[in-house]
Amino acid sequence: MLKIQNLTKKYGEKCAVDDLTLHIQPGEIYGFIGHNGAGKTTTLKAAVGLIDFDSGEILVDGESVRINPMECKRKIAYIPDNPDLYDFLTGIKYLDFVADVFGVGGERNEKISGLADVFELTADLASPISTYSHGMKQKLAIISAFLHDPKLIIMDEPFVGLDPKASHTLKEMMREHCDRGGAIFFSTHVLDVAEKLCDKVAIIKEGKLIVSGNMEDVKGDTSLESVFLELEDNDG
């Protein structure tokens, strides 16, 4: 579903992502772990087509992000680390806007009400987004991501700001999405969540991939946290 091949992105002299290669298959929840500034967000943004990169290739369902960005974006939903949404719109207007852009058909009403109910946001849909808390904005961003049934969902720290119930709901939805053949690639610092939720995991440090593979293979008999800390220390 998502092939990142030899991705390199530099900001001036600094190499944010260095020759990174990852393959995310349909049905997989793929966790992306690393310290602050390791290159996670840069990788995710490049995969969505938000930033250009220096070398390498990114394919979404066989389409190149560089050559055919529109086709790729139709198949992707993206949730950034900080959900800066249109404050001047109400929640329902924002969702309607997203549905229009992605061409969600007649079933949009049912989809919106279903997703808003699941995240307990229905009562607030008529309020301007400017009145929402961080968590409510995050919920709205998540609802908008699931609205057009994307094949691939790319999320940057999706659990930040969510209450425990919403976190649980999101985890269930992520699993259901992958069970239906979709794929999820997300970054997180919550290693317990990654360990329980992800099928595969990749650990990145200073732009370079340190380890990747099936969760069981990566963590072995220990915990993901132990592996991560050990890798960080060894490399340091």
Binding site: G91, I92, D96, F97, A99, D100, V101, G103, V104, G105, G106, R108, N109, I112, S113, T122, A123, D124, L125, A126, S127
Partner: peptide, 15 residues
């Protein structure tokens, strides 16, 4: 209070 209304699809340009 939000009252659900029928949302109609629009083109990207109109949206």
């Amino acid at each position: 209070t939000y009252v659900a209304k029928e949302l109609k699809g629009k083109s990207q340009l109109v949206a």
